[in-house]
Design a protein around this nucleic acid. Structure first.
Lengths: 222, 222
DNA sequence: TCGGGGGTGTCAGGTCGGTGTCAGGTTAAC
DNA sequence: GTTAACCTGACACCGACCTGACACCCCCGA
């Protein structure tokens, strides 16, 4: 997927784009409205991440003209916490979702996935695989029909893995997605969560395979 | 499907119609009651999205004459965030559903689908679930047949939850929906209202589940 | 203008569950 | 056999959440 990030804070912009690249997305970065407009006119994007406060104007005006020109690229608005009115107003202007700064990168990634999924026409968000039903919106899972309550972290870990079955996730990668910068956790934490998730998945056909020195992978042993 | 959108705010109108077009619908747009009447007399629509506050009158009068002339096109009313009392009348006048601004476009789309789907039967606004009868217009609720009077905030909270049962609402989302921009309330306020609503729902099968770190969810423990 | 009352949000104290760490055991690699 | 990576049961901590009490405010009637 190709994203356009419109954000004037260079540091934050770098953090976001590197995080998005972890997910395999291509990110192009504009620091102001002028550049953003130029980018949109010349390229096609799957998603736009739009900061509201920009040096040369209000992000909402961009959003407005963007929608007015019949472009239907989904937009997620980034706002500061205090500017609640911005979030609400931007929804009216056609934003697909908003995230308040400071935000968890894991959360932003989740929102992006949700928006893209919604846009793909799949209003059906429930993922079924190997005897597991997973509903990220409801935060619920059922294994062989039996409902299982997952905790916050377990949920997010499962969401990561199940969205890319068969892919190898290094512990570093998982750690990056599950935790934010400032809290530095030991790699063992990941091992623990993998174990907990494994227990939940035990009755199903989904197995988490360990690849020594490489990471983990979700497989379907049907 | 062919929709008629009656809305004087041009930006919002454009946002809505472009969104609806994404879903493959044709949208015609009237900015006032006069135009709306002309549209309805000349064309056939599958659904009407009707703003209440219009430059040349109250949308409800349009709704009334519309119903009086035996047209059974479903109508979804768009109202500003306000007291329940403001909405009284619109559903009595034959609206099929209403959405309060500001709204998620995804939510509006969902309401549209719901209205069109249940159009086969009768227009039904009272929600019955798990021993609870909820009438959002009258602002009344009954648990196991016993009438319960809810306060304004409790009503709006219940309304949010019951319209999307099984979905997780973060505290921030609930806060955005329940309160307006200028008053910034602590997250604890949400917790308090959840508790108050829980007490009311106690005799019923509807339970509000806490998902630590994620939010709340309305479940039916039938 | 005053007083009352219902609705509303805050606060403080308490509870409890998720969370990450640790230590010791197990397994794979060489 | 040695080593490093990984697994896992137990545990303590911290913060999210709950809740009873309270102060505030707006509306109403006197």
């Amino acid at each position: 997927m190709k994203f356009l990030l419109v954000e004037d804070n260079q540091e934050l912009a770098h953090a976001i784009s590197s995080r998005m690249q972890l997910d395999g997305h291509v990110v192009e970065h504009a620091s102001n409205l002028k550049d953003a407009t130029a980018f949109v006119e010349t390229g096609e994007y799957d998603l736009i991440l739009l900061d509201i406060m920009l040096p040369d104007g209000d992000g909402r005006s961009f959003l407005k003209t963007h929608r007015a020109s019949d472009l239907d690229t989904p937009v997620i608005v980034l706002t500061a916490r205090s500017q609640i009115s911005d979030r609400i107003g931007s929804l009216d202007l056609g934003a697909d979702d908003y995230v308040t700064k400071p935000f968890d990168h894991a959360e932003l990634a989740a929102r992006c996935r949700a928006v893209l999924r919604r846009r793909a026409g799949k209003s059906q968000t429930i993922i079924r695989s190997g005897g597991v039903e997973f509903d990220p919106v409801a935060g619920s899972m059922a294994v062989q029909g039996q409902p299982v309550t997952l905790r916050n972290r377990e949920l997010r870990l499962l969401e990561l893995l199940i969205n890319a079955p068969g892919q190898i996730f290094s512990k570093q990668k998982l750690s990056d997605r599950l935790f934010s910068y400032d809290d530095d956790v030991s790699e063992n934490a990941i091992e623990v969560y993998i174990a907990r998730l494994r227990k939940h998945l035990d009755p199903s056909d989904l197995k988490i395979t360990t690849l020594r020195g490489l990471g983990y992978r979700l497989d379907n042993d049907a």
